[in-house]
Design a protein around this nucleic acid. Structure first.
Length: 268
DNA sequence: ATGGTTGAGGTTCAA
């Protein structure tokens, strides 16, 4: 059997409300590592026991009401950090990083990120979003120098290209598709990160988020804003990637579906 | 009137 490792990312929009679905996802799809965003609870209130029962180690960075990120991993987590250098608002829980030890003394660095939504183009929150993306980009560049397997997954709140939005004409210049946001995302790719889904499927339109309002999901009016970005060492081992759309179809669904990818660990 | 919906925590804000 070929050794492999699966990594998923999911903005759950409240881990408490989504707990039954989260447990089902962990049982059915069994990712080795799951990156969560929008916990919307403090770290102490995170439902640790139910998830640990399924064999996961946890790294949690929560806060009251908003934001909150976590890493769930079947392999032990080391060097856990919630510091994003030059984070414009470090009081907001939007970043967590850890190191996973793989067989044969190899290391995998993993991070869960929740990029600010930005609310409205030109607003203070939009400037904050761009500043956060710049900080994330610079941190990626620093981590890339380590030349290790690196996976930074999360809700980037940016649809990179026309194919990633349901109506590129109507969406032109609007939040999550503004040229400045797309340029900030592209800068991460130019630095050497690979967009896992798009690398495997250059011409497939596949969204990861659909608005709760106006029957957007039923009409497939969505955006692809949840991404797994890979260092070259990780990209070389990428085997497949998919959006788990069934989770968006459920009653009381998150507005985001998980994105999952699989890596070969042959000859690591 | 930017409508429409969800979640947290309240009688509104963020997404």
């Amino acid at each position: 059997m070929t050794p492999s490792l699966s990594i998923a990312t999911w903005n759950v929009n409240s881990v408490k409300v989504r707990l039954p679905q989260l447990l089902d996802f962990l049982k059915d799809d069994a990712p080795d590592i799951l990156l969560l965003q929008e916990l919307k609870c403090q770290s102490e209130a995170f439902p640790r026991e139910e998830i640990e029962m399924l064999g996961y180690n946890l790294a949690i960075h929560g806060q009251k009401t908003y934001n909150g990120v976590a890493i769930l991993s079947k392999l032990p987590l080391e060097d856990i950090s919630t510091i994003l250098p030059d984070d414009p608002a470090p009081d907001q829980a939007r970043y967590i990083e850890a190191v996973v030890s793989l067989p044969h003394n190899q290391a995998l660095r993993i991070a869960s990120v929740y990029v600010p939504n930005g609310q409205e183009v030109g607003s203070d929150k939009f400037d904050y979003k761009l500043a956060f993306m710049t900080a994330l980009h610079h941190h990626m560049e620093a981590l890339l120098l380590q030349e290790e397997m690196l996976v930074i997954g999360g809700d980037y709140n940016v649809a990179p290209e026309n194919i990633d939005v349901y109506d590129p004409v109507a969406s032109a210049g609007s939040i999550c598709f503004h040229p400045l946001e797309r340029a900030a995302f592209r800068a991460m790719l130019y630095s050497g990160m690979t967009d896992a889904y798009r690398a495997l499927y250059p011409d497939t339109q596949q969204f990861s988020w659909w608005d709760y309002r106006a029957g957007a999901f039923q009409q497939n009016k969505g955006l692809r804003i949840d991404h797994l970005l890979l260092s070259p060492q990780a990209a070389d081992r990428l085997e497949n990637c998919a959006v788990v759309e069934k989770m968006r179809k459920l009653e009381k669904a998150s507005d985001h579906a998980p994105v999952i990818c699989k890596f070969s660990l042959n000859n690591v």
